[in-house]
């Protein structure tokens, strides 16, 4: 079973995302900011990461740039999931190595389709 690390400072969002992603066959791990997520990745690199942008300590884009420099850090497929909807922000995320991008609010259909788009399902 593939593992998806859900990184978001909102416990509610993590809970909702967990439920949706478990339904489509993922094992879920959770982190509430980029530093925690990076620590998790150093111990066990997940196949997928659902990543918020705006978080305390280390935000999503900083985390992604750090992740890609880690050994094995090029492997996880990263899907942003954020309230940021400017084209420039989306482009910045893609340039940093994100595969897909979800704009909040989302529903289960959107997450499922985006994970299919990112060839995770």
């Amino acid at each position: 079973m593939k593992t998806c690390l859900v990184v978001d400072d909102s416990r509610v969002i993590r809970k909702v995302a967990r439920r949706i992603l478990e339904d489509i066959g993922f094992d879920i791990a959770e982190a509430s900011d980029g530093v925690e997520a990076l620590a998790w990745c150093r111990s066990a690199m997940p196949e997928a990461i659902l990543l918020d942008w705006n978080m305390p300590v280390m935000n999503g884009i900083e985390f992604l740039r750090h992740l890609r420099m880690e050994p094995g850090g090029e492997k996880p497929t990263v899907v942003f999931c954020t309230v940021e909807t400017d084209i420039e922000k989306i482009q910045e995320a893609l340039d940093a190595g994100a595969s897909e991008y979800i704009m909040k609010p989302f529903d289960s259909d959107i997450i499922t389709r985006k994970f299919i788009e990112a060839e995770l399902v």
Binding site: L94, Y101, F106, I110, R113, E117
Partner: peptide, 19 residues
């Protein structure tokens, strides 16, 4: 917001849509 997230790859959105 919902319509552009159903089936449309994000790169197509960036390339072919404006806010």
């Amino acid at each position: 917001h919902f319509e552009v997230q159903r089936g449309l790859p994000i790169r197509q959105l960036v390339r072919n849509f404006q806010r």
